[in-house]
């Protein structure tokens, strides 16, 4: 049962990731990317990390994909024929992806993975996560919020109408 669910998620993840870089229409590509991101959220749920999965959907699908689609719409004339995407750098990209695959395979082969079922690990609950973020990981956490604030101010400055 659980294996079946995993394979469904895995196949949809790979298929839509592949489609999102190969279909011609940019809007179709965005839809495929949405399915990819939803599948990634599915992987998180499957691994027993619902918090990360939920945040994945909220941020990537609800926020970033909406912005992507807005950007696609606003860079062309509204109702215009679709923008085509192209793969100009097919061979360098393929070589790079191949190199990453080889590296991953080497690491996977080098380790002996135990295939017996382990008792489910009790993941950190939300409270622990919050406490950790505000104690041990306070500096990176605050740094990210500073970065986001800078981006926010920057967006307003760029978007402001010039006098």
């Amino acid at each position: 049962m659980t294996e079946l669910v995993f394979y469904i998620i895995a196949v949809s993840l790979c298929a839509f990731a592949f489609l999102s870089v190969t279909v011609g229409d940019v809007f179709h590509s965005a839809v495929c990317l949405t399915f990819t991101l939803l599948s990634v959220a599915g992987v998180y749920f499957f691994l027993g990390a619902p918090f990360i999965g939920v945040i994945q959907i909220l941020v990537y699908v609800g926020g970033i994909m909406t912005l992507f689609i807005f950007a696609i719409k606003l860079t062309a004339k509204i109702g215009d024929a679709s923008i085509r995407q192209f793969t100009r750098q097919l061979w360098p990209g393929a070589a790079l992806a191949g190199a990453i695959l080889a590296l991953l395979l080497a690491v996977i082969r080098a380790n002996a993975w135990s295939l017996r079922l382990l008792p489910p690990v009790q993941g950190p609950d939300l409270k622990q996560l919050g406490v950790e973020l505000l104690t041990r990981y306070l500096l990176p956490f605050e740094f990210i919020s500073l970065l986001l604030l800078a981006a926010l101010v920057g967006a307003i400055v760029i978007g402001k109408v010039k006098k």
Partner: peptide, 18 residues
């Protein structure tokens, strides 16, 4: 009863805008 219940609801409903 997910321990992230309300967040789950908000995130799932945000998909419908797409």
């Amino acid at each position: 009863d997910l321990n992230v219940g309300i967040l789950f609801m908000c995130s799932v409903t945000s998909v419908s805008v797409l």
